[in-house]
Amino acid sequence: MASDGVVVEIGKVTGSVGTTVEIPVYFRGVPSKGIANCDFVFRYDPNVLEIIGIDPGDIIVDPNPTKSFDTAIYPDRKIIVFLFAEDSGTGAYAITKDGVFAKIRATVKSSAPGYITFDEVGGFADNDLVEQKVSFIDGGVNVGNATPTKGATPTNTATPTK
């Protein structure tokens, strides 16, 4: 695992066909100046998982989280898009600690492993708008004895992609 920078880890949970599971997305290594904004994309298989919603985690402190935390689910493109932009203008609602960034709610549709993997990152910046190093650890849903650990090695991303 990367020793510096922010680590975004997609949790690994267990479920069975027809059940709804909650998959946490963790941030670790949050910089001392916090995270003022970030955007990134995960990939998944809508034939295996139906993403039914995404909720902000406990490290989102904006009293009205829909102003700073936004997501979009595109089953036709097989992606989930995340956007966080601190909304106070003063840094008061920045992410300042490690913990759960988001909770992905999904219904298991198939007995195949439900991988959720890193696809791309736009950027991560602290309260001074300084770009942060970030790496990703894939996860998803274990169905029966299947284990979604494909790509469990962190993917280092030093520069934003478009």
Results as ranks from 00 to 15, higher is better:
residue 24 P to G: 06
residue 65 P to C: 07
residue 143 V to C: 07
residue 17 V to K: 11
residue 80 I to P: 00
residue 43 R to M: 04
residue 22 E to S: 07
residue 152 A to E: 10
residue 37 N to Q: 00
residue 103 K to A: 06
residue 81 V to H: 00
residue 144 G to F: 09
residue 109 K to M: 07
residue 131 E to L: 01
residue 117 T to P: 04
residue 2 A to P: 08
residue 140 G to Q: 14
residue 78 K to F: 02
residue 43 R to G: 11
residue 82 F to V: 02
residue 76 D to Y: 02
residue 118 F to E: 06
residue 69 F to E: 02
residue 103 K to R: 10
residue 68 S to K: 04
residue 30 V to C: 03
residue 68 S to L: 09
residue 64 N to M: 08
residue 149 T to S: 10
residue 68 S to M: 13
residue 23 I to K: 07
residue 27 F to Y: 14
residue 61 V to I: 08
residue 6 V to C: 02
residue 107 T to L: 07
residue 72 A to Q: 00
residue 133 K to N: 08
residue 85 A to C: 04
residue 19 T to E: 01
residue 86 E to F: 00
residue 116 I to C: 08
residue 153 T to S: 11
residue 49 L to F: 15
residue 128 D to E: 03
residue 154 P to T: 11
residue 134 V to E: 02
residue 68 S to V: 15
residue 85 A to I: 13
residue 92 A to I: 13
residue 130 V to E: 07
residue 16 S to Y: 06
residue 81 V to C: 01
residue 57 G to Y: 14
residue 80 I to Q: 09
residue 15 G to R: 10
residue 39 D to S: 01
residue 94 A to D: 03
residue 99 G to T: 10
residue 9 E to I: 08
residue 14 T to L: 09
residue 138 D to I: 05
residue 91 G to I: 06
residue 36 A to G: 13
residue 22 E to T: 08
residue 137 I to E: 11
residue 110 S to R: 13
residue 125 A to F: 00
residue 144 G to I: 09
residue 145 N to G: 07
residue 28 R to D: 10
residue 132 Q to G: 02
residue 36 A to V: 06
residue 109 K to G: 08
residue 100 V to F: 13
residue 35 I to K: 01
residue 93 Y to I: 09
residue 35 I to S: 03
residue 54 I to E: 03
residue 105 R to L: 13
residue 25 V to T: 06
residue 10 I to A: 04
residue 29 G to V: 14
residue 75 P to G: 05
residue 132 Q to A: 10
residue 75 P to L: 03
residue 96 T to S: 10
residue 72 A to M: 01
residue 158 A to R: 12
residue 49 L to M: 02
residue 30 V to W: 02
residue 31 P to R: 10
residue 71 T to K: 06
residue 4 D to R: 08
residue 100 V to G: 05
residue 154 P to C: 12
residue 71 T to V: 02
residue 67 K to D: 06
residue 73 I to T: 08
residue 25 V to Q: 03
residue 67 K to M: 14
residue 114 G to R: 11
residue 107 T to E: 12
residue 5 G to S: 14
residue 161 T to D: 12
residue 11 G to N: 14
residue 105 R to P: 11
residue 133 K to T: 08
residue 53 G to D: 06
residue 81 V to Q: 00
residue 54 I to D: 06
residue 15 G to K: 13
residue 143 V to F: 14
residue 50 E to A: 05
residue 16 S to W: 01
residue 118 F to Y: 05
residue 141 V to Y: 11
residue 148 P to L: 04
residue 126 D to F: 00
residue 84 F to R: 02
residue 130 V to K: 06
residue 157 T to E: 13
residue 5 G to F: 06
residue 151 G to I: 07
residue 117 T to A: 04
residue 85 A to G: 00
residue 132 Q to E: 02
residue 133 K to Q: 06
residue 141 V to Q: 13
residue 79 I to N: 01
residue 53 G to N: 08
residue 62 D to H: 15
residue 83 L to Q: 00
residue 76 D to I: 01
residue 71 T to S: 05
residue 38 C to V: 02
residue 146 A to D: 11
residue 106 A to M: 08
residue 143 V to S: 11
residue 108 V to L: 10
residue 119 D to M: 07
residue 118 F to T: 05
residue 105 R to G: 11
residue 71 T to Y: 04
residue 131 E to R: 01
residue 147 T to P: 12
residue 154 P to F: 10
residue 127 N to K: 02
residue 23 I to T: 06
residue 102 A to K: 14
residue 124 F to Q: 00
residue 152 A to I: 10
residue 120 E to K: 01
residue 92 A to D: 13
residue 148 P to M: 12
residue 97 K to M: 05
residue 68 S to Q: 09
residue 33 K to P: 04
residue 12 K to G: 06
residue 114 G to N: 06
residue 103 K to S: 10
residue 51 I to G: 04
residue 79 I to V: 05
residue 73 I to N: 07
residue 120 E to H: 01
residue 159 T to P: 12
residue 95 I to Y: 03
residue 123 G to Q: 00
residue 91 G to V: 03
residue 128 D to P: 01
residue 71 T to F: 02
residue 137 I to Y: 13
residue 11 G to V: 09
residue 88 S to W: 15
residue 20 T to A: 10
residue 106 A to C: 14
residue 104 I to C: 09
residue 63 P to D: 14
residue 54 I to C: 03
residue 10 I to E: 05
residue 86 E to V: 00
residue 37 N to I: 01
residue 103 K to Q: 10
residue 8 V to W: 01
residue 104 I to K: 01
residue 50 E to C: 04
residue 45 D to T: 11
residue 115 Y to H: 07
residue 135 S to D: 07
residue 5 G to L: 10
residue 36 A to P: 02
residue 22 E to P: 12
residue 108 V to Y: 13
residue 26 Y to G: 04
residue 106 A to G: 14
residue 3 S to L: 05
residue 111 S to V: 03
residue 112 A to W: 02
residue 7 V to Q: 05
residue 60 I to M: 07
residue 144 G to A: 13
residue 82 F to H: 09
residue 49 L to G: 15
residue 56 P to M: 02
residue 44 Y to P: 02
residue 129 L to K: 00
residue 81 V to P: 02
residue 135 S to P: 04
residue 4 D to T: 06
residue 90 T to V: 15
residue 102 A to I: 09
residue 106 A to T: 09
residue 59 I to G: 12
residue 107 T to H: 10
residue 156 N to D: 09
residue 93 Y to V: 14
residue 22 E to L: 05
residue 144 G to E: 08
residue 143 V to H: 12
residue 139 G to L: 02
residue 143 V to E: 10
residue 102 A to H: 04
residue 72 A to L: 00
residue 138 D to F: 06
residue 112 A to D: 12
residue 112 A to P: 07
residue 4 D to Y: 07
residue 68 S to E: 03
residue 48 V to P: 07
residue 8 V to Q: 03
residue 63 P to V: 11
residue 3 S to R: 08
residue 55 D to H: 07
residue 31 P to Y: 13
residue 27 F to L: 07
residue 126 D to Q: 02
residue 116 I to T: 10
residue 74 Y to S: 00
residue 70 D to N: 15
residue 59 I to R: 14
residue 85 A to Q: 01
residue 6 V to E: 11
residue 7 V to S: 10
residue 95 I to E: 00
residue 158 A to W: 13
residue 155 T to K: 13
residue 145 N to F: 15
residue 7 V to Y: 05
residue 85 A to H: 06
